[in-house]
Design a protein around this nucleic acid. Structure first.
Lengths: 178, 178
DNA sequence: GAGATGTCGAACATCATGTTCGGAAATTCC
DNA sequence: GGAATTTCCGAACATGATGTTCGACATCTC
């Protein structure tokens, strides 16, 4: 009852082709034909698996999210520092994340990553009095994304541990306003 | 040397038509033809003013950003509480912001609003030791966006003042993590 | 090996985009 | 108020991307 090898080969080829193209030029400037050429897959075959370019992207991100999820799940159960695990992973796949987020596809990527991070954060947050729980989760996720973007875009050389420290610092006490 | 009335009429008609359509359906599902019909403007005229649908959207947002900027500038100079002014404004235009942010155009909108908020926040932040200044600004902006989205999407009934309080609370000390 | 399933590729209909241009209408400036 | 300028209209057109269809062929599973 295993999946037909051909199906797997086709899908992986398309996933990889899309990612490769996204690393080269803006997502919006990529056509289905481009993907087909790169993946060496027939047009009708493409539409037998995906309904559109956006669909392919969404599933590619699902795949990425799965990897992220597995990396996080593999973390020693009692260990604190789930965010460090995520940062470490993101650092490894930095090129891909960066390319994806800089493109118009940012929304879709953000949504995918948000989902994973939110799942992780939800159970590990102790909201304080007068602070709605869902807002607290959103805030933790947003802060994670902020730090990640800042890190990948402009301070790539920082080690994950240092990035993680900044993350916790921002959450504990952000900048004062005047 | 005033601008020809006709060009003003044309542009406003197109701005309004786009916003009206965005309130009805996803940005991606709107064609140039739809906008033309709604605005009652000729095709060639459209391309005499804008290069594409995205261009029109970007300029519409510039217009919105100007309004936001003016609202903030009108604030009493010494007054603290710039964020309250922004929240109040956003609350008034809530429908538009919500429609825009929920759509695939979210990135473009986000960029526009970010710019305004960042300009405002930049001069009013006292970053702490060991916290990069640019990261601090990003964090304040992101937190503003998080609170705004949370507010408009699910807790519209909250008064701006209360929303502003949550904003400051999150910045002062976010949720604790385990 | 046989049957089932997946792939190919070319052809096709459809639709959105962006351009062109001559005539009509509105506006500005004097 | 009138002439000159600017803008708008609208229809037609070229282009290019999308998504579908179908029969022949290849590959996989059992």
């Amino acid at each position: 009852m295993a999946v037909d090898r051909r199906v797997l080969r086709t899908r992986v080829a398309l996933y990889d082709a899309l990612v490769a193209l996204i690393l080269e030029r803006p997502y919006a400037a990529i056509t289905v034909a481009d993907i087909l050429e790169r993946a060496d897959i027939g047009r009708s075959t493409f539409y037998a698996h995906f309904t559109s370019k956006d669909d392919l992207l969404a599933r590619s991100l699902d795949r990425l999210a799965d990897i992220l999820r597995r990396a996080a799940d593999a973390m020693p159960p009692g260990a604190d520092g789930w965010s460090l695990v995520l940062f470490t992973h993101v650092g490894e796949y930095g090129d891909v994340y960066l390319a994806l987020s800089n493109v118009a596809a940012g929304d879709i990527l953000r949504a995918a990553v948000r989902g994973v991070v939110a799942d992780f954060a939800r159970g590990r947050i102790k909201p304080r009095q007068g602070l709605p729980a869902d807002l607290a989760v959103q805030h933790v996720v947003a802060t994670f994304m902020t730090v990640t973007t800042w890190w990948l875009e402009r301070h790539r050389n920082l080690p994950p541990a240092e990035t993680d420290r900044l993350f916790h610092e921002l959450l504990a006490a952000g900048p004062a306003l005047s």
